[in-house]
Design a protein around this nucleic acid. Sequence first.
RNA 1: GGCGCUAUAGCCAAGUGGUAAGGCCAAGGUCUGCAAAACCUUUAUCCCCCGGUUCAAAUCCGGGUGGCGCCU
Length: 299
Amino acid sequence: MAKILVICGATASGKTSLSVACAKAFNGEIISADSLLVYKGLNIGTAKPTVEERAGIPHHMIDVVEANKCFSVSDYKNMALPILEELLAKGKTPIICGGTGFYINSLLYKSQFGNVGASAEVREKYEKIAETEGKERVYAILCEKDPESAKKLHYNDLKRVIRALEIYDVTGKAKSLQQDEPIPRFDFAAVSIDYPRDKLYNRINLRVDQMFEQGLIEEVQGLLNVGITEEMQCMQGIGYKEIAEGLRLGMTKEEMKEIVKNNTRKYAKRQQTFFKRMQNHTYLTPDEATVEKVCELLK
RNA sequence: GGCGCUAUAGCCAAGUGGUAAGGCCAAGGUCUGCAAAACCUUUAUCCCCCGGUUCAAAUCCGGGUGGCGCCU
């Protein structure tokens, strides 16, 4: 029997309720794998499970960072992995539940991320070069230093090109030489709830409407009031960046709503693409999203 | 009724004689320290209709139709 259950999938597909039901049935605890649920103060727009929804089940990796802080996959892995291992040691079933595939993979696979953190100096240096001489120039530099990594990147993908350069400059070793093989470190079974695209989009539209009714605009305003700025990482979340900008530009509630809906739809699509490649993964129809069905898969 | 302007992909839109920019949306994809991020690919056999000029028209001319504006 698989020791770990992964519940992934697009936003608004019903992960939360399935995860709680499974936790109850399998003596489990939930480890959230969501890049925005980690932030304190971002509740409505992230559809953070409420106390009632959590139904007494411990939820880890939620509200673990202040809203004005940066947070990366590496931070996530460093915090979540020990929790996961401890649960296993206690004989509990860890249930990794969330929509950030990158975070899920950081737990499932051995990943050192080049063994280097972010270097503001290095990043600024290359960002400046990109501005003055163009992205192509930065890419050309990577081609010289780490041709293997360069081959896998597009010259426009500045963020990743700079990251590869950062690893090389700081460690003196090419990123391509430090990348771990994607071998799972745990025995796991993954599921996601698969809605037809149009149905999922309807659910998203509905959910965004609810978020606005619940006071999403007020939540964003509140964050801005306590000094959270538009540039901060947590404000890049969908529902937050649009409203912060909308407020600044004097947009109407309806206009903001439409933009949030659209961006959420596009996000869901990207998530679906990502999870298509998840290993040990089974699609459940909405009707199959039950404890019984998941139980079969864990065998 | 008269005059003027306009008509290009689902939407916005460039192009004013040489064989359809770009953006949005949509679809597909990538993904090892910002991942709700960043990035890539695809998407008009054809420019409202009819006729004319020309080697060649979305581009010029005439007519028709729709839209917008002004006038009576």
